[in-house]
Amino acid sequence: MTHPFDPEGALDAVRAVVAAVDPDSGRRRGLWSDESIARGLAGHYGTWAGGWLYAVQEYPDSGTVITSLPPSGIGAGDLDAQARRYTSALLQWRAWLEELAGAFARLAPGGGAAADAGEVVRLRERGVAPLVTLVVERTQAGGLWLGTCAQALGWFFEYTGLSV
């Protein structure tokens, strides 16, 4: 992945975002919304860091890539509990992105750069089945796995250099 990330410092960074005041609402982000936390993390780390928001689903058979989250602490306004929860989501999201990046590199070395269109199509054809399998394994084919699969395949197609 091209965006540097230190997982050891993630909890401190997330704490700072959770405790910060949301410029849109004037309230502490942790007491406002998941969306404001996602925006804050994207502002801190880059746009990749906001993607966890749409991958969080607290039902075990949902088919999302983030499966195990600590309690939110929202009812009690416990900012530290919220920071642990958001850090868990961020770390799981980053692990998924790194897993996909590794799969892309194995399935299409060089990402299709400088390859002719026919070779890119062959890279795609060889890559689709392993990526679908990876998504199914990661999401356990729960109810929302199709969206995760479509996203992963779309990213792979972008990586190979041809439009979808």
Results as ranks from 00 to 15, higher is better:
Gly73Ala: 11
Pro23Thr: 09
Ala108Cys: 13
Pro109Trp: 04
Phe104Ala: 06
Leu146Thr: 11
Leu107Asp: 13
Arg84Gly: 09
His44Val: 02
Asp34Lys: 07
Ala108Ile: 09
Gln92His: 05
Gly127Thr: 08
Tyr54Cys: 04
Ala95Gln: 15
Gly51His: 02
Gly142Glu: 05
Ala141Glu: 15
Trp93Asn: 01
Gly30Trp: 08
Ala103Asp: 12
Val136Asn: 13
Ala113Met: 13
Ala117Thr: 00
Leu69Met: 02
Arg15Ser: 12
Tyr54Asn: 08
Val136Ile: 12
Trp145Lys: 01
Thr67Tyr: 07
Ala103Ile: 10
Ala13Arg: 05
Thr133Gln: 14
Val120Arg: 15
Pro60Asp: 00
Leu131Trp: 05
Phe157Thr: 00
Pro60Trp: 00
Arg39Ile: 02
Gln57Met: 06
Ala95Tyr: 06
Asp61Ser: 08
Met1His: 01
Gly110Pro: 10
Gly30His: 08
Ser163Ala: 14
Glu158Pro: 08
Ser33Cys: 02
Leu134Tyr: 00
Gly46Glu: 02
Asp116Phe: 08
Val128Cys: 08
Leu100Pro: 02
Arg94Ser: 03
Gly77Asn: 07
Gly77Thr: 03
Gly50Ala: 08
Pro109Gly: 15
Glu158Arg: 13
Asp22Gln: 10
Leu11Lys: 04
Gly40Pro: 02
His44Cys: 05
Thr67Ile: 10
Ala117Lys: 03
Asp24Gly: 07
Ala117Pro: 09
Asp78Lys: 14
Leu11Ser: 03
Ala20Met: 07
Gln57Gly: 05
Leu11His: 05
Gly127Lys: 07
Ala103Asn: 15
Ser72Met: 03
Arg28Asn: 06
Pro60Phe: 04
Ser36Ala: 11
Gly43Leu: 04
Glu35His: 03
Leu11Gly: 11
Thr133Asn: 14
Thr2Gly: 06
Val164Cys: 12
Arg126Asp: 15
Cys149Ala: 14
Tyr59Gln: 10
Ala89Ser: 11
Ser33Thr: 12
Ala42Pro: 05
Val164Trp: 14
Gly43Glu: 06
Val128His: 06
Arg138Gly: 08
Gly63Asp: 04
Ala13Met: 06
Leu11Pro: 03
Val121Met: 12
Ala141Asp: 14
Trp48Tyr: 10
Arg106Glu: 09
Glu58Ser: 10
Gly102Arg: 10
Ala101Asp: 07
Asp12Trp: 14
Asp12Phe: 13
Val136Cys: 15
Ala81Arg: 11
Thr87Asn: 13
Val18Gln: 01
Ala89Ile: 08
Ile37Met: 12
Gly143Thr: 10
Phe104Thr: 03
Asp116Ala: 04
Trp48Thr: 05
Val21Pro: 01
Leu41Thr: 07
Asp34Ser: 13
Ala19Trp: 14
Cys149Ser: 09
Arg84Lys: 14
